[in-house]
Amino acid sequence: MKSADTPQDTRGAVVTLTNRPNEPEHEKVVHEQLAKRLAALQGLAFLGEYDAEASYPCPLYFVPSSTVVGTDLARKLGLEGERDLFGGVVPHAFIETKAITHPLVRPDAGSPLGWSREFSRRVTGGVLPGYSVFSLHDAREAGRRLLNEGALRIKPVRATGGRGQERVSTVQALDHALENVDEAELAQFGLVLEANLEHVTTFSVGQIRVAGRILSYYGTQRLTPDNAGDTVYGGSDLLVVDGDFDTLLDLDLPERTRLAISQAQVYDAAASDCFRNFYASRRNYDIAQGIDDRGRACSGVLEQSWRIGGASSAEVAALEAFAQGRGGKVVHASSVELYGESTVPEGATLLFRGDDAEVGFITKYALVEDYGNPE
């Protein structure tokens, strides 16, 4: 074991942990910038990227690029609870995906080790109609049931940003779509079949627990053209309170916003209660509101994120504002991602600006503004 060439700090130190198969340079740089700021907020040293061969002089606080999977790995890293990382720990890989959102198609349907039927029961009414399946047979049965009510959406559980999803409105289209499914991937991680909505608004509702504070928020995502002209994630606009979800609900909010927050709150509590050895200091939930094929208004949690994400620069900026006594108990915080040449507004915190090998020229910054009346 080699010694890390770092200053001693008995209170602990912060490190990043790259635990995704692929991480673009611009995201790696942003994660490092946020880790440095999280270190400063906690009065800790920042020691850079975690080195498994190093002998560190103090307990570590981790900023992983993805959810930490497996209790054995968590113990090896010295993780014991949410105070030890910015992100989350799950005992099994499928738990970090949208597969947990829906019930099985039958009580005796196949499911992976660690599956919680109680979780599905707890979140009923707070998620869209749908099923999680782990075999082609169950996928066909689930799809046919949902098609009786209208079009459905087939969703690979490990994809992000809507990638790989397919809208299906007939049995023939369902069978064709399932022909391309990898059965080994399906058995391990699952597949979601969910009612399709139109005219959708997607809310982000989340909470971070860092540096002795709990911050909760709701917001929406923005889209922007990338350097190829495709529409991609362009950042998040959040309304953040210094407090828990109930503190957020104490604000004067529109009813549809209150519904999204309440549904996220139920989902969050169910995850904590139903999945043993799960914990997270960063919790984010996407809630879709729209119209189904029969013209009915629907609202439900789509999926969770228990890892550093696109909105995290806004989360950390809000945390800094509250720690410094700026903005009272409520602030607006935004994360912004722009492609090509762009101008960074005065007062923003620049996180990355330059050419990235995967996406081209990109600028990423965060901005905190005084609280006004929410829309």
Rank of each mutant, 00 (worst) to 15 (best):
L41N: 14
L44E: 09
E166L: 15
P91R: 06
A40I: 05
K76G: 03
P59I: 09
V232L: 10
G161E: 14
E303F: 04
E149L: 03
S66I: 03
S262F: 00
N196P: 00
E346S: 15
A348I: 10
C298V: 06
V316Y: 01
D138K: 08
G328D: 08
L34V: 13
V29T: 14
D370R: 11
E315I: 08
Q263F: 02
S272P: 00
D226C: 07
G347H: 10
E320Y: 05
R153M: 13
D51W: 03
T247M: 01
P91D: 04
S132G: 10
A173Y: 04
T170M: 00
K98W: 04
F94H: 11
R122Q: 12
D252S: 14
G12K: 09
F275S: 03
Q33E: 15
K76A: 11
S111P: 01
V68F: 01
G360C: 02
Y233F: 15
A39M: 14
E80I: 00
A195M: 11
D292V: 03
R122F: 02
V200F: 02
G212M: 11
V29Q: 08
Q304I: 05
Q8C: 10
T101K: 01
T18M: 03
Y365K: 00
V344L: 05
R283M: 02
G81F: 04
Y217R: 08
Y217V: 00
V14K: 03
K76Y: 01
L178I: 06
V89S: 04
F119K: 11
N22S: 12
W115G: 05
L338P: 11
S55T: 15
S335L: 11
V330Q: 12
S204D: 08
D246L: 08
L79D: 05
F119S: 09
W115Y: 12
Q265T: 07
A314F: 03
I100C: 07
R145S: 09
A142D: 06
P254M: 01
I308Q: 04
P64N: 05
A54N: 06
V69C: 03
A45W: 09
R140P: 00
L238H: 14
F134C: 09
D51H: 05
D246G: 07
A288K: 08
G12C: 06
E49M: 07
L47K: 12
T257C: 11
A269Q: 05
L259K: 14
V157Y: 08
A211M: 09
G290D: 06
P91S: 12
I100D: 06
A109G: 12
D51G: 08
N180G: 11
T231S: 15
G360N: 02
C58Q: 13
V210L: 09
V14Q: 06
R209T: 14
T247F: 00
L215Q: 03
R106L: 11
L174G: 07
Q165R: 10
